[in-house]
């Protein structure tokens, strides 16, 4: 099985889907000739031509809006936001139009658009290139928000997103792009959107997280295993809607839950996860639900020392797990 990086899995998934379905096309800033600022669409312009890999003006609202229109007419657009930080001008299109189209038209219309956006920090990107914006979209019924952690999941979930008949916001951690590598089968497969995945089985503490933080959790778990502290890691994969069943099961298994997000703590996805657990698992809890998240400050700092302080890492995760294990 070939080993590839996170971003290669993105390219591979798009390539396979464009090859499989003529209706799939790409639009975004510098996605064509340039192959994307992160090279996510590298080689696709050459392979599929300018009519299927479209460079757009610097207008996120238009990228989303054009994509939505095309989707309504039966196309399968993959709209790229160059950075998730820039998605805000497109929020009206995504939330008020794409997410609500099926409902508004009483099922007459659908909007099978996939909007890709690289998010997250730790790349020395400062304010405009480091944000986690998933919470903005995480209470919009009609919209799905997918945030994979591994190359295998990227390919399976991105293909599923493209084939989904409703809008999917597909958020890729930009630091994971080249940092995370993994085996990805050549064959065609999809993974179910809305299903979390147990990345590691354990009995002492359950860590529930998503995106890059899954890897911090796995590293910490590996280290703690030497001390016989056994960690269960649940990767949410889809942060909206949440896989409640998997969350309840994983939380109940150990009774000690650590929730991790790179986003600012207050109002983040994991707050909702905590709510699900406290609604359903009271009599299975052995410790207070613990959250590990970014500080509530306006943005990822530029200074390397401060960025390091803001970002999560395996050490911080390990420390939090240890506190719970000892509780």
């Amino acid at each position: 099985m070939p080993v590839m990086s996170y971003i290669q899995a993105v390219t591979k998934a798009i390539d396979e889907e464009m090859d499989r379905d003529q209706k799939v096309f790409i639009l975004g800033e510098d996605v064509g000739v340039r192959g994307g600022v992160f090279r996510a669409t590298d080689g696709l312009y050459q392979k599929y031509g300018e009519s299927r890999v479209i460079d757009t003006p610097l207008a996120e609202s238009a990228i989303a809006g054009v994509g939505i229109g095309a989707a309504m007419y039966g196309m399968r657009p993959i709209a790229e936001m160059q950075f998730a930080d820039f998605i805000l001008p497109a929020v009206n299109q995504i939330i008020s139009e794409a997410a609500k189209l099926r409902y508004r038209s009483n099922n007459d219309w659908e909007c099978p658009i996939t909007i890709r956006a690289p998010y997250g920090g730790g790349v020395h990107g400062a304010l405009y290139h480091s944000q986690s914006i998933e919470a903005i979209f995480a209470n919009q019924p009609g919209l799905k928000v997918v945030m994979p952690s591994t190359p295998y999941d990227v390919k399976g979930l991105l293909k599923a997103a493209i084939r989904d008949d409703d809008p999917v916001l597909f958020l890729e951690h930009k630091r994971a792009y080249r940092l995370i590598k993994g085996e990805v089968p050549d064959e065609d497969y999809t993974l179910p959107i809305g299903k979390a995945d147990i990345k590691r089985e354990g009995t002492d503490v359950t860590v529930i997280t998503y995106g890059l933080c899954v890897h911090f959790a796995l590293q910490a778990a590996e280290k703690l295993a030497e001390e016989n502290i056994s960690i269960e890691v649940l990767d949410l994969r889809t942060v909206y809607p949440l896989d409640q069943e998997a969350i309840i099961k994983a939380a109940s298994k150990t009774g000690k839950v650590l929730l991790i997000t790179e986003d600012n703590k207050e109002g983040s996805i994991i707050g909702e996860v905590a709510a699900i657990i406290s609604e359903n698992c009271l009599f299975d809890l052995d410790a207070p639900i613990k959250r590990l998240a970014g500080p509530d400050v306006p943005s990822m700092p530029y200074a390397p020392t401060l960025e390091k302080e803001f970002m999560l890492n395996a050490d911080k995760v390990e420390q939090s797990i240890r506190e719970l294990a000892e509780f």
């Binding site: 009774g255 009271l282 009599f283 299975d284 809890l285 052995d286 410790a287």
Partner: peptide, 14 residues
């Protein structure tokens, strides 16, 4: 010590 020894979590009580 004395205070936590008898402070039971919900799962332990159940």
């Amino acid at each position: 010590n004395t205070s936590m020894k008898k402070r039971y979590s919900p799962v332990v009580m159940r």
